[in-house]
Every structure is written in C-alpha cells, then in structure tokens.
Design a protein around this nucleic acid. Structure first.
Length: 419
RNA sequence: GGUGGGGUACCCAAGUGGCCAACGGGAGCAGACUGUAAAUCUGCCGGCGUACGCCUUCGAAGGUUCGAAUCCUUCCCCCACCA
C-alpha cells in the first residue's frame, strides 16, 4: 500500500489537506468520495484532476466513491462562479448525470475489497424535507461562518441567491449521508471545494462526533497563462462524440514543453523514474517531443482505451509526419481516417471540383477557398494544387478511391470516390 | 435622484457629414522558417461572389440630408464622481 498523500504530493496534485489527514490515510483503508457536477452531459479534461485523485486513492488501497450530483445539481454550486447560475431542469440534470456516470465508471475498478462505488446524491437529496433539513442540518451552521466562506464572500458584492447560499449545506449533508451509508471519512475535490468540504467535516463532527478529512487538488494552470483544457474549438471533453479521440490525442501532443512534465505527473500513472527519463529526452531532443507523445498516448489510453489511443497515434502520424506518403497508405488506414477526420463523398465517374471538395470537407465558401488556393495552402495526396486548379485528377486516387485533402498544416480531410 | 463620460467589426481601439467595410493593435487564417513549438518575416482578415460588384454592419428605433458611424429626436445599456 503506497502512501496516498505523498503520491499526490510528488505528482503536484496536492493542494490543501485537513489537519491529521496524513495519519488518517496511513491508519488503514479509508472510504473517500469526490463529487462531480452534472452541469454538462460530459466531463472535460479539467475534471481529470479530481478523477486522478480517486484513481490514486484506489491504487493506494483505499476505496473511492464517485458521486454525481443529481441532487446538488438542482441547486448549483456557487464555488468559483462570479455570478448566479441558471437553474437546470430536472430532465437536463438527469441526462447529464447519466452521461457523467458512464464516464466516471471507466477510471475506477469496481471489483474486490476496495471496489469503487458510483452514487448519485439525488437518491437522498431530492427526497429531503425542507423542515427536517433546517432542523437537522441547518441548525449546525452559523450564518456568520458561512459568510466567511470564499464561495459566498466573493459574491456578497455582486449578489447571491438564498438557493446558492445554501449549497454548502447540501454538500455537507452529502458527506454526512455517505459517512452513514458507506463509512466515508474523507472527501477529495478541486481547490475551490475547500469551503464545502470543511462544511462537511464540521457537520460530521457535530452530529456524530467523528473526525472526517478533506484533501484538495490544485487548479491546473498552463505556462502560457491560457485556461487549461480550452482550445480554439472549445472545451476538450471526455466524450468521444464531443471531442474525438484523435482531437483529444492532439490536445495533449500540442502541450507546451514547459507543461509536458507537469502534465505527465498529473495525468498519467507513469512512475517517477520513467517521467524523469522523458524529461531527459525532452531536454536532449526537444524536437522529438517524446514527452508530449507519451503524454498523449497515456491520457488518451486512460480515457478512451488503448485501442483508441493507438488509432489516434496512427492517424496523427499520417496527418503530420511528412515522411508518410498518402499514396502508400493501406485502404484500411483510409477507412480509419475517414471516421476520424472530415470526409466527403463524390461520384466515381465524374471529376472532383476543387472548390466543391473544399466546401464539403471544410465548410469553406468559394471565395475563401480561392483565397487559400492562391496562397498555396491546399494539397491533394501530398501534391500542392496550383492557384488556378479546377479539378482533381481522378486517376490520382489512391487504390482508385481515396484522396487526402490538406488545407494548411493541420487540417486534413478524406475524399472518397464512391464505387 | 444629480452631474460628467461612454456604447464602433471576435477583443482592444481610432474615426465626429462624402476619400468608411471603417486607421492601428491583438486574436484568427495562410505562406516562409520550424519541433504539429516559440520567435520572426510576408499576405489575408464583415458576408457572398473568379474581375467589375452585390448584401449586412458602427447600442435600438425613427428623422434631417443628394449622401450619416458621424447631425437631430426618443428609447435601452454601461462607467465615474456626487447623495
């Protein structure tokens, strides 16, 4: 049994902990939980931090409980939010909960003694009676203390509804409910959760006179000062339907040198010496970007499975490795590519119009396409098209069927001539 | 409630009757260079169109004018100081 907190610590995943937390985890197997808000139907890469917290917890011999907030989602956590949130409908919440449940399930092992559990706080929160709640839970909290919590204090100027103000009581009650049901004695969460977590430890102390602990994980920052997990095309989701495994893999491959090692520690399970080896490789041959490639393979594997990671790797190689000649690719590679990147179908017996191809593959207008052609930005099967190119020569199709259409350095699509 | 200053394209920001699709910067896209990087240089950069052009923009709605982002009226919204 490795030490949970020291593992988090060297990986840069430890931010705050309650007093005595180290002794608590050292004393034996602990059941600990982490909650996830059902604000969207999918988790995103930012959620990987607390997920890794649960993963390390389990690897250290403790029992992780992943909680989806089907109940707390009805209220909305004000933590880290500058303004009041729009309430979601019950249907939206339920749909989001089921998406998130499915994703969380992939990271944990549900078998054996330290088998993980997946629970939804809707189970106890939605049935909660207001009067009972105020007597049993509310009585243990002082408004004076609640106003001191960051999540509330930072909103006193701009305004906060009674609903969101009360949120911390619900999360505190969750902790107590899990303590009663599953013997949970610790909670893991993002750094913005400290106030909610300590509200829970206090409620447990007051109602059942037991010590409970909390651990928070840091907010991920990038060296460039940009928001982690965002690309030009939006958030990087864990749902393959929202962010394809290929796009997901690319997100990690494109990580800055300055962040690669930090992210290897945070988001992969590679041991320290292996990461040090990658650090050495990165500084010796930065252009190889061995660290980023490994990071991308590992995280994609963790989230989408090994097969998807390998596929993403292969697709990336075709798209970015200049030594790969489109004309030598096997038909099944094209089939794979067609599923991962934009793909447009054309009749087999007619020549393909260049502007049509660009429009259907990338959604470009004819004017925009012409401009790109003039700039020499378009190539087919590795051959740059002339500024006045009109049609794609059908005899150049690979296996008599496929074309690799490239726009600029990174955008690639497949054109298919129907048989 | 009073006084003053504002609302311009993705963001910042010039423009105060025609030369304005609107200076400049950033972002974005593309080319060269490269490590699918950074920095740098170059081109594009409201939409649509192969040129000529057409359409839609300067908080909103009306009006004046041959002509308005620019003038007038009303309305909406921000900010600063005062209470």
């Amino acid at each position: 049994m490795s030490d949970f907190l020291s593992e988090l610590s060297w990986r840069g995943l430890l931010y705050q902990q309650t007093e005595g937390a180290a002794a608590h985890f050292a004393a034996g197997a602990v059941s600990a939980y982490c909650g996830f808000d059902p604000t969207a139907s999918s988790l995103h890469v930012g959620n990987l931090v607390p997920i890794m917290g649960l993963v390390h917890l389990q690897r250290a011999g403790h029992r992780p409980i992943a909680l989806v907030g089907g109940g707390t989602g009805m209220i909305g956590d004000p933590s880290g939010k500058a303004s009041e949130r729009q309430l979601l409908t019950v249907d939206e919440i339920d749909a989001n909960v089921s998406g998130i449940r499915e994703q969380l399930g992939r990271f944990l092992d549900f078998s054996g003694d330290s088998g993980a559990r997946l629970v939804d706080n809707a189970e106890w929160l939605r049935a909660l009676n207001a009067v009972d709640f105020m007597r049993d839970v509310g009585k243990h909290f002082s408004i004076n203390v609640m106003m001191q919590k960051d999540s509330v204090k930072s909103r006193l100027e701009s305004g906060i509804s009674y609903t969101e103000f009360s949120y911390m009581l619900l999360q505190a009650y969750d902790f107590l409910a899990l303590h009663r049901r599953y013997g949970v004695t610790a909670q893991v969460g993002g750094s913005d959760q400290w106030g909610n977590i300590t509200a829970g430890t206090e409620l447990i102390r007051r109602t059942v006179q037991r010590d409970a602990h909390g651990v928070t994980l840091p907010l991920v920052t990038t060296s460039g000062g940009t928001k982690f997990g965002k690309t030009e095309s939006g958030a990087v989701w864990l749902d393959a339907a929202r962010t394809s495994p290929y796009a997901f893999y690319q997100f990690w491959v494109n990580v800055d040198d300055a962040d690669a090692l930090k992210f290897l520690r945070m988001f992969t399970l590679l041991p320290q010496d292996e990461i040090e080896g990658l650090a050495a490789a990165l500084s010796a041959a930065p252009h190889e970007r061995a660290a980023q490639r490994r990071l991308a393979t590992e995280v994609t594997g963790l989230v989408h499975g090994h097969a998807a990671a390998t596929l993403a790797e292969r697709v990336s190689k075709v798209i970015f490795d200049r030594r790969v000649d489109a004309r030598e690719l096997a038909a099944d590679v094209f089939t794979t590519l067609a599923a991962e990147i934009p793909c447009a179908h054309f009749a087999a017996d007619a020549p393909i119009n260049v502007l049509d191809a660009l429009e259907r593959a990338f959604g470009l207008s004819r004017g925009a396409s012409r401009k790109l052609l003039q700039q020499g930005a378009v190539s087919v099967n590795g051959e740059k098209l002339a500024a006045d190119a009109h049609e794609i020569d059908p005899t150049g199709a690979v296996h008599d069927r496929w074309f690799l259409l490239r726009k600029g350095a990174r955008e690639v699509a497949v054109l298919v001539r129907e048989a």
